[in-house]
Amino acid sequence: MLAQIVLFDGFDPLDVVAPYEVLHAGGVAADGALTVQLVSAEGPRDVPSGIPPLSLRATGPLDPARAGLVVLPGAAGRMPDGPGQAEEDSVPAVLARALGTGLPPLLAACVGRPELCVATVCGGSLLLAMAGLIGGRPAVTHHDGMGALADAGARPVEARVVDDGDLVTAGGVTSGLDLGLHLLERELGPAIALRVERLFAHERRGVVWRPAA
């Protein structure tokens, strides 16, 4: 399986690096059954994060036809204190700029493939909601953004990870570790997930929410 982690200008580095390392370690533990790639809508390029001067290198384009798993990070910044306070470097402003690129149609193609799992960390779910791609679906984001997530049409759920089948969302920044481990358990089995959990000396916490059967 190919996992692609999406970079866009202003992304939060920890949203990317945490699941990248977990998924990569799982792929190694599973003898290459999972490979991980950093991508962007534009293809190979150096992508500036929201914490300058740090940037990461996208090595290829986001490809909904090839990927079996797509992970979308959030943005680095803060939530506005009130209406009309969406400063240029706030999370909603950074996400809005990402919506003005070639990313939304690619994300729409990802969401439109039920066999492809789209996962998000922190504000990544808000980006999907702002793009009109997860209307009415259960999702979680950083606690400061739950109201904005509801305003954008998603159904906020108070949980560490929300697993709605082909859409898996995780809460605040550090939840990228828990998201990665949950995805390993889903895709490669609990033995691989436990092996990586021990490697990272990280005990998963919080609740994985799933819809009632």
Rank of each mutant, 00 (worst) to 15 (best):
M1T: 11
M1N: 07
L2W: 07
I5G: 01
F11Y: 13
L14I: 15
P19S: 04
P19Y: 08
V22K: 03
A25N: 08
V28T: 12
A29W: 06
A29Y: 04
A29H: 08
V36H: 02
Q37S: 09
V39S: 05
S40L: 02
P44V: 06
G50H: 04
I51F: 00
P52T: 11
S55Y: 04
A58S: 03
G60K: 07
P61R: 14
L62D: 02
A67K: 01
L72Q: 07
P73I: 15
G77H: 04
M79F: 11
M79N: 13
P80H: 03
G82R: 04
E87M: 14
V91G: 04
V91R: 13
A93C: 11
L95Y: 01
R97Y: 07
A98W: 07
T101I: 10
L103A: 07
L107I: 13
L107P: 06
L107E: 03
A108I: 10
A109V: 14
G112R: 11
P114E: 12
V118K: 01
C122R: 00
L127M: 08
A129W: 03
G132N: 09
L133T: 12
L133V: 07
G136D: 02
R137I: 05
P138K: 10
P138Q: 10
A139F: 10
V140M: 03
T141W: 06
H142E: 02
H143C: 13
D144M: 13
M146S: 07
G147F: 14
L149K: 00
L149R: 00
R155S: 15
R155A: 12
V157F: 13
A159C: 11
V161T: 06
V161R: 00
V162P: 01
A170W: 04
A170C: 09
T174C: 09
T174L: 08
L177T: 06
L179Y: 01
L179I: 15
L181R: 15
L181N: 15
L181W: 11
H182W: 04
L183C: 12
E185C: 09
E187D: 11
E187V: 15
A193E: 04
L194K: 10
V196T: 09
V196W: 00
R198G: 08
R198W: 06
F200G: 08
H202L: 13
V208T: 12
R210H: 07
P211I: 15
A212Q: 14
